[in-house]
Nucleic acid binder design. Sequence first.
DNA 1: GAGAATAAGCGTACGCGTACGATTTAGTCA
DNA 2: TGACTAAATCGTACGCGTACGCTTATTCTC
Lengths: 234, 234
Amino acid sequence: MGRAPTETSPRLGNHAVYAYTIAKSKGITGMSMNQDTKMGRPKQSDDERQQKVDAIIQSAQSLFIAEGFPSVSMRKIAAKASMGTMTLYKYFPNKNAILHHIWAGFFDELFDLVRSDVEKETDAKSKLKAMCMTYLNYWVGHPDRFRIVFLNEDRASSTDEFFINHANITQEMLLTVGPMMQDLSKSVDPSSMMVFLESLMCFVHGVALNVITISEYPWSDYEKYIDIFLDSKF
Amino acid sequence: MGRAPTETSPRLGNHAVYAYTIAKSKGITGMSMNQDTKMGRPKQSDDERQQKVDAIIQSAQSLFIAEGFPSVSMRKIAAKASMGTMTLYKYFPNKNAILHHIWAGFFDELFDLVRSDVEKETDAKSKLKAMCMTYLNYWVGHPDRFRIVFLNEDRASSTDEFFINHANITQEMLLTVGPMMQDLSKSVDPSSMMVFLESLMCFVHGVALNVITISEYPWSDYEKYIDIFLDSKF
DNA sequence: GAGAATAAGCGTACGCGTACGATTTAGTCA
DNA sequence: TGACTAAATCGTACGCGTACGCTTATTCTC
């Protein structure tokens, strides 16, 4: 693969790549050149690359906003961005990598909701419950978005270079919630609180998953499920 | 749609359909005929239909076993069953309806494991924990299967006529687990135990979902999550 | 300039799920 | 028998994601 040499450190300059190129051409032509010169067409600058990346993301997002999710196809994104379809793959490893940028917006929206609802409560338990309810209401109210975000086969996400991914959002979420629980954190050590928050997060995602994807089953009001979970700790 | 009249009661005979046909031909031709005669090619018998259905499922399953999940495509199933691709759609509304029959096998396998592991334990809490661990180990050990079962867009599943679906399996699971908890059920009323089991199920699915799809995040050992949940009730 | 080298861009092709509508088949009726 | 009819079958076509490899652009060295 042509891109392989740059994948490990895309923002750290290309010395290693150039050195390799030079060594190779030395071996063939027997001539020497200094480290700053390189043969062939130079790579586009980070700015240039970023501009293209932004254009692609903007096209995807405007398509999503204007015509809904089903319209976000690689061919349509490319057409909107005035480039060949396969050019997208120069900048993103696959469709999911582009989608990440769309659903990052969902999380912004969601976290704003959560924060504002949580602020209305005073004690830790009420805050946690408010958080869970707002979070669940959002996903159950937007099941299509839940599917986009969580029910996507994105095995390749760990190999892409983009900074927004599930793990970061998980972390952001836990960090957002953590400070809400000062009164709790006084009595519990941080690491076991983290485990608690993680399990709470699993729980909330599980409720959403079940309610959304197993819609034929007569689930109880999910507030009851939350109460069961939270009553364990409070 | 041609199939619409039979969709509501596929196994209950076709009187309504025939009556409609007769009335229509009366109106046009002015002739009378008894209720048992019908024009045009007769529908295949339930047996004939079931034979085709079985052939399709067998093809899908043998493909899955022999070549793995990626080989289970409509074209390949049809080729294996020696019929045109679109003929499959006479018997199944979409690919997912065929897939249901494949992953029903996963649940058989899984429930056997769960039952045998649970039997080794004596008290309710140990049984529940064993169940959770076995269940989670299975899905985390077969993430591809988890994706097939839970991360499929099967909006149409509620319209298909097949008896195996998420809801049934959910119910089966709860009924399987219920009897394991005799000692608990003495002290708790059945309806709130159901709510507890449902929330436990959400929790377990959520752990699997998070661990499998958000694999970049450094999740703790999920045994800890289970302990947190179960410690609430015991 | 000519030519080599390399990055960027994209045309073509494959297999996918499935909508649509034409064709074939299997019966009854005159 | 042959016309009629409805069920069963499936050929064709569309848009999809994307693998592969060719074309084009931009820089170098000579």
